[in-house]
């Protein structure tokens, strides 16, 4: 930084046409980046069109209790992938349900109320749709499919997927052990060797 000497009251003057133009550019850049952030960051999951078709949210327990009344209704559900099975004309995913947050992203799997099956006509690669990944689906409630789970039969509600969103893996920054890391003086390493605590 170069500090400019200022005489009292008279600020340093620059070329008059230079400054406002630069200001304009900056504002434009700021606006553009804001717009970009909005367009990429606030995209709704599932799409707005789909969300308009969805009625009031159905408690997951009601779907589990095999009530025919909900058949054919549009729902938004989410959870964690347990298994991806590929079939000749599509894929069947077993999902551990989890409640959704305000962005329709699944919350902790400890809050799960059960499981459901997700059927899609698309081929979903089991190397991408791997166990443990978060997924949100917009789809239609279909039949209930009893499948063995351990020693019992579990009645899985089946959802026919219309829109599917796989959440990207969360890369948590883990700081490896650093012997020189010093919480007290953190960004100012050159003050580390102060003679007092």
């Amino acid at each position: 930084m170069v500090s400019e000497p200022r005489s009292n009251g008279t600020p340093v003057t620059r070329a008059p046409e230079d400054k406002p133009r630069r200001g304009c550019k900056l504002v434009l850049l700021l606006l553009l980046s804001l717009a970009h952030a909005c367009m990429t960051g606030c995209a709704s999951v599932p799409s707005r069109q789909f969300q308009q078709q969805v009625g009031p949210p159905i408690p997951f327990q009601e779907l589990l209790e095999e009530r025919e009344i909900h058949k054919g209704e549009m729902v938004i559900l989410g959870g964690y992938i347990l298994e991806t099975v590929n079939e000749p004309h599509g894929s069947l995913l077993t999902i551990l349900q989890a409640p959704l947050d305000s962005r329709n992203k699944p919350k902790s799997q400890d809050l799960s109320e059960g499981r459901f099956l997700l059927r899609t006509e698309k081929f979903l690669d089991p190397e991408i749709y791997t166990k443990g990944r978060k997924l949100t689906v917009g789809g239609k409630v279909s039949e209930v499919l009893p499948q063995p789970l351990g020693n019992r039969m579990y009645r899985y509600p089946v959802i026919e997927a219309e829109e599917l969103y796989l959440w990207s893996k969360e890369t948590r920054y883990i700081r490896p052990y650093d012997p020189y890391y010093d919480y007290w003086h953190y960004p100012w390493h050159w003050y580390r060797y102060r003679p007092y605590p």
Binding site: V85, N86, E87, P88, S91, F123, D125, P126
Partner: peptide, 13 residues
């Protein structure tokens, strides 16, 4: 080269 069809689960890929 020529493509090969193999199964991934029940899906012919």
């Amino acid at each position: 080269s020529s493509s090969e069809v193999r199964s991934i689960g029940g899906f012919q890929y």
